[in-house]
Design a protein around this nucleic acid. Structure first.
Lengths: 116, 116
DNA sequence: GACGCAATCAACCAGTCGGTTGACAAAGAC
DNA sequence: GTCTTTGTCAACCGACTGGTTGATTGCGTC
């Protein structure tokens, strides 16, 4: 078990409910009850979602009295952003290079040999 | 079924094998056989992974003879990047504002009332 | 037409996931 | 102490996932 960090983050955000929680936590910290309020699921289900988010390092929990406020940890987003940017830029660069190749192609060279 | 686009993209990238495929496709298009070569799984499994990536709009397929080359579609990354950036910036902004609040806090105001 | 290669379809299997209900723990409030 | 609030743990359930093997399709070669 214990998949790599990136897999855990992506997988955590693959669920719309969890993404919505992240969205709301970006505005303000919240307790489990506050977080659960808009959703039509049990408190236990929300608790499970939070465990997933916490496992991915996306949120942290503290303690005040019997409450356990949830706090969004923004740093983990960097991990994703880096991964995404790398391959997006690489793909765009490749696309740009293809244009160059096509532009510099001599006319007597067949770009794609016709079938048969 | 047919989860929203963002869920499909995140879920597709939650798998390390699929992420590796994306990484390799960022360098060059490839056939299923070429893609499958480094992994210790059946061709059918790779075919399934490709269906997931295609379903998320991350790759497209064309046809040349009996081959079906896979091509990375970079645009979808924008969707993710936008989502991520929004909430990262929001969280960072919130963090910055908290600093301001603390800095402007009069000394006679108890930031956290001590227990008991 | 027969053969071979690239890739997919179909059925199956074990494990994970998101949800449930029920019991429990921890910290105030009375 | 007893009650209430806040939240978790545990067991269970149906659906989905990533993998398998076997049969099949599509296309070029001989």
């Amino acid at each position: 078990m214990a998949a790599d960090a990136l897999s855990q983050v992506f997988s955590a955000l693959a669920d719309p409910t969890r993404r919505d929680m992240v969205a709301r936590l970006a505005v303000a910290d919240a307790t489990v009850n506050e977080l659960a309020e808009p959703y039509d699921v049990s408190l236990q289900a929300v608790s499970k979602h939070l465990k997933v988010l916490q496992g991915a390092g996306l949120v942290s929990r503290s303690r005040q009295a019997q409450r356990r406020p949830v706090h969004l940890e923004a740093e983990v987003f960097d991990l994703m952003t880096k991964w995404i940017e790398r391959y997006r830029l690489q793909a765009e660069e490749r696309y740009r290079r293809l244009d160059d190749v096509l532009a510099s192609m001599p006319d007597d060279v067949e770009p794609t040999p016709p079938p048969r």
